[in-house]
Amino acid sequence: MSKAPIDANPMFETDRIYTATTSAGGDFRFDAAVARVFPDMIRRSVPGYTTIIPMIGVITERFARDDSHCYDLGCSLGASTLAMRHGVGDRRCRIIGIDNSSDMIERCQHFIALDDHPAPVELRCEDILDSELEKASVSTLNFTLQFVEPERRPELLERIARATLPGGALILSEKIRFEEDWEQSIQTELHHDFKRANGYSDLEISQKRSALEQVLIPESLATHRERLLAAGFRQVTLWYQCFNFVSLLAVKG
């Protein structure tokens, strides 16, 4: 499986959105400013992200099948899209990346065009809650579900499960919350230590946390497991965790 390029690219800027002089306030948005710094932002903010992306390719290699679709739901700049594209190898699969941010899709198109893998890729600028899904062998929600309104999450997962072929898989990566206050506290502190180690100041950490408070709503690991099983997936396993960030693999029977 060849490696897909995206994260270490000179066209991206260093994330300074939440510094004292440039922070615009308000809720977090996937706008043009975020698109310009997104690879730097997510690498320095999400523990394990640089492990999860290539492993999406590995998992895709196992579950992708001929004459099926592989969906990257909430594709942003296409890191998971490219990992899936390379993971399908020479299978007859169509990779479909969907995001409701036109700024993200515009930049994603650039990276898809630079990549020389022959598997076809289709990008759609639309809401994943309204997207038509069918014949899926692999789908990813890579830190996407947490931005969906909680009451609409079961509906989305049920639609994905219905569209998934028997034996197909969903990769769900999320920031989670913990049942015990002490565990939530220490995991949050460790996450903030991770950000500090990657060069973020306390002010930046605080301002971004405030911007995300009403937008990113995490849930417990147990809630995610139960919802995936209720949606129609037969097996759910935790394959990755670092602090309060996890990735689950759900397989349809």
Results as ranks from 00 to 15, higher is better:
Ser201Pro: 01
Gly253Ala: 09
His69Glu: 11
Ser131Gly: 07
Arg65His: 06
Ile105Ser: 06
Pro47Phe: 03
Gly25Tyr: 02
Gly74Ser: 14
Ala33Asn: 10
Ser220His: 03
Thr51Ala: 13
Ala79Arg: 09
Asn100Glu: 04
Gln146Lys: 03
Thr50Ala: 13
Thr81Leu: 03
Lys252Glu: 02
Ala230Ser: 14
Val88Ser: 07
Phe111Trp: 12
Leu238Tyr: 01
Arg177Lys: 14
Asn198Arg: 11
His86Phe: 02
Asp103Trp: 05
Arg153Gln: 15
Ile56Glu: 10
Gly199Glu: 07
Glu189Asp: 13
Asn142Phe: 01
Gly74Phe: 09
Pro47Thr: 11
His69Asn: 15
Leu114Val: 01
Arg91Ile: 04
Asp72Lys: 04
Glu155Phe: 09
Val246Tyr: 09
Val236Asp: 10
Ile56Trp: 02
Leu238Ala: 00
Ala119Lys: 08
Arg152Asn: 14
Cys75Trp: 02
Ile205Val: 12
Phe243Gln: 08
Leu123Val: 07
Val138Phe: 01
Cys70Glu: 09
Cys108Glu: 11
Met41Glu: 11
Ala163Arg: 07
Pro150Val: 14
Tyr18Asp: 13
Phe245Ile: 05
Arg227Gln: 14
Arg177Gln: 12
Ala83Arg: 10
Thr81Asp: 05
Glu158Thr: 15
Leu129Ala: 12
Ala222His: 10
Ile171Thr: 05
Arg196Glu: 11
Glu132Ser: 07
Arg16Pro: 00
Leu248Phe: 00
Gly168Glu: 10
Arg153Asn: 05
